[in-house]
Amino acid sequence: MLPSLYISHGSPMLALEPGASGPALRALAASLDRPKGIILMSAHWETQSLQVSSAAQPSTWHDFRGFPPELYQVNYPAPGDPELASRVARLLNDQGLPATLDADRPFDHGTWVPLSLMYADATIPVVQVSLASQGPAMQYRIGQALARLRGEGYLLIGSGSITHNLRELDWQATHDAAQPWAQAFRDWVVQALTDNAQSALLDYRQQAPHAARNHPTDEHLLPLFFAYGAGTAFSVAHTGFTLGALGMDIYRFD
């Protein structure tokens, strides 16, 4: 059975400057059986109602501005899987989570940046599940509803960032230096996941130290709950910070 994963995808520049995350993602992918397909929830697809991407050949969307020209030349031509997308939607609907198909959704950078480092050949079909707006408990239920697919050879991934306050990045920080408030939040999450403290995690905004400072908005943490809902045996695959406050952790749930 494949695990579910939570990946901190950092800046879009990770695709060109992978730092320590690149080898960690490549090693993680190499340690797993090759997936039949990937089902991914990205922080960069927020919707009011739950949607599933069903395009046969999604385009690569450079959903950012102000980066070097070469980044806009990166293409990740992985196929979609309309049949898998329909099954994912059925599983969600069967669990009381109404979901519809979106045949036009491209791959946003929360999808193609980490996958370009894990599976550079871009031949594994990828289906995205949107980040519906109902908070941690909703994403946890989505993960639970799709967990059975792990046993059928599908890899479930939540893609975000364990800390994400772009206004407080320190552009002079040394590579692994972390702001104390960012480190404290990251450590609280890891301990809560280690303890499988579900109620505390779902209420992280009230219980975790510096929660609002680390996540002024919570879209980059919410995919964690998707991965957590799909598998509970937690371990840390990679840890680190860039720019003082951007956590680059990678977690797996077996």
Rank of each mutant, 00 (worst) to 15 (best):
G229R: 01
Q48H: 12
T60N: 12
S4Q: 09
A20C: 09
A212S: 14
N93Y: 10
G143F: 02
F64H: 07
V74N: 01
P58K: 03
V129Y: 02
L193C: 01
A15I: 06
M138E: 14
A212R: 06
V126Y: 00
Q183H: 09
Q51F: 08
G110K: 02
D102R: 03
D176A: 15
L221V: 01
D108P: 05
L91I: 05
T100G: 07
L221Q: 02
A29S: 06
Y228M: 13
D63W: 08
T100M: 11
V52E: 09
R167M: 11
T47Q: 03
D203F: 03
M41Q: 15
L16K: 08
D94H: 01
P180A: 03
R167K: 12
G160W: 00
D218V: 02
Q51K: 13
R186A: 15
R186C: 14
A122R: 06
T232V: 11
Q57N: 14
D254H: 13
L246H: 02
D33N: 14
E83H: 14
R34N: 14
R26F: 13
P3L: 10
V127A: 00
V88M: 00
Y204V: 00
H9M: 05
S42T: 05
S54C: 04
T217N: 03
E17W: 12
D176C: 12
A212W: 06
A182K: 02
I142L: 07
S4N: 14
S130W: 06
P82A: 07
H62L: 08
I250T: 11
Q207R: 15
D121V: 09
R34T: 15
H215D: 08
P23Q: 12
R87K: 09
L156V: 08
V236Q: 03
H215V: 04
L5D: 12
A137D: 04
